[in-house]
Amino acid sequence: MQIESEKDGEGPKGSDIARKLPWQDPRVLFRYKLRRLADKMVVAVTILAVVVVLYPLLDILFMFFYRGALAISIPRLTGLTLQFGLANAIVGTLLLVSLSTIIAVPLGVLGGIYLAEFSAQDQMSKTFAGTVRFLSDVLSGMPSILLGYVGFLILVIDFGWGLSPLAGGLILSILMLPYVIKTTELSIRKVPLKLREAATALGATKTQMVNRMTFPLALPGILTGIILSMSISIGETAPLLFTAGFSNYYPCGLTNCQVGFLTYIIYTFAKIPTTDSLSLAYLSAFLLISFSLVLNMTARIGLRRLSKI
């Protein structure tokens, strides 16, 4: 916008200058232009940051999808590792994730409900709940290989389960727990106070309120958390090296029976420079990323649509 600027020399007592409004003052306009410039620079820097992060990610995704898709073949999908196939590892990964989900979901969801609904009743339970929240946060930041080692000492050796699906699944479930607890608590807390008051005013007890209103309303959010935590546990390797071992055959039992899984295939075969080995590693990566993408998209697109609050 072009604004007529006043001539500097003209009498400062002139009524025109005395009435000059802020938007007519060239100094104000100059400072505004500086601010506008700073604004644009901030936007440019943030866009650059996004590109820096996204480019490698897309590059990696593309490479694995491309190489992985090239490696798809019936024998590789249905054969055992011995015959350069992934069938036993696919079954093993699904078994481990199912076990960990079965263990983590009831504990985590009930824990989250407790933290959100029943922990504010007196000072003692408040302190207890605060401690649980803190420990759960610590757990979510703990290096997973340490949990694997703990699992090795306690489950594999002391309990005598050996390297096994149960030991691996239990350790994975401990990794999932903090996420399930946190998303459950947050989803339940998102149910607005005015709905809680409505239920209370109708004479609902706390349990009835949770069963009939808060929990159903929070369910899409809770399921989202569960699914995301499953996709985290699908990608774990380190703790499983300590607890699940590896096997070239199908799983043979819950304890004292080593089990194969997809991340181990990548860990091992990506280091062997033959076409067969590399193809197997790429296909394995392709499958893992696909599982993860499907789970994430289910959570983000499918479940958000169900949400009523």
């Binding site: 005015k194 709905l195 239920a199 007890t205």
Partner: peptide, 23 residues
């Protein structure tokens, strides 16, 4: 009690009225 801003449950009309009798 009826509150200041309408606070129906995000359920069906029927389920809203049935909530009290059900519990």
């Amino acid at each position: 009690m009826v509150f200041q801003s309408p606070n129906p449950f995000p359920f069906s009309i029927y389920e809203n009225v049935a909530f009290g009798p059900k519990i």
